[in-house]
């Protein structure tokens, strides 16, 4: 039986089939960080520090969605989101962002060649104010191609 940490399963939505996904990892995503991408992000988020505005260094949340595989438009779901290959079929479909916890080992800079590996850390159910919620917790490990650890992220997606 796969490990579960916070499992509250009041509605029995987390089946054994779903639970089997805990511990699985996705295909590592590789990306090259460019100054231009950092500058775009800095403008969109209205950063004030010069190092971000000039693109010398990436702001702390720059890599938020970078683990996501890039797919063609016809592979998007009706809600616009990418069909996530690292997600079991869930009885709840609408998605909300839940939050993150990041640990930073060194700043991300232009020219970095990064490898992002995502793993399902946990799946559990909670009773929300307006019905049941399913939390899917991912761990994302960000390293350089040489294996230097850059950042670790824990992120929660909420299905309602």
């Amino acid at each position: 039986m796969a490990k579960t940490t916070q499992t509250a399963d009041p509605g029995g939505l987390i089946t054994t089939q779903i639970r089997q996904w805990i511990g699985r990892s996705g295909e590592p995503q590789r990306l090259e960080v460019t100054r231009r991408d950092i500058m775009k992000y800095a403008i969109a988020t209205q950063q004030r520090l010069e190092k971000y505005r000039r693109g010398d260094e990436a702001p702390p949340m720059f890599l938020f969605n970078a683990h996501q595989p890039l797919v063609d438009l016809d592979a998007l779901r009706p809600d616009g989101l990418t069909v996530d290959p690292l997600l079991p079929e869930l009885p709840l479909r609408r998605v909300m962002a839940g939050g993150i916890k990041n640990t930073y080992h060194r700043p991300v800079k232009p020219g970095d060649h990064l490898v992002l590996t995502r793993t399902i850390a946990d799946i559990y159910e909670k009773q929300g104010a307006s019905g049941p919620l399913i939390f899917v917790v991912y761990g994302v490990r960000v390293e350089t191609e040489n294996g230097e650890l850059v950042m670790e992220e824990i992120r929660r997606r909420i299905f309602r």
């Binding site: 988020t45 520090l49 010069e50 190092k51 971000y52 702001p59 702390p60 949340m61 962002a97 939050g99």
Partner: peptide, 19 residues
């Protein structure tokens, strides 16, 4: 976006810390 609010939280910190 939730993560955009997360970014604003991070900016409260990075602006306090400086360059």
């Amino acid at each position: 976006d939730g993560p955009l609010q997360g970014d604003w939280l991070s900016q409260a910190v990075t602006e306090w810390l400086g360059e």
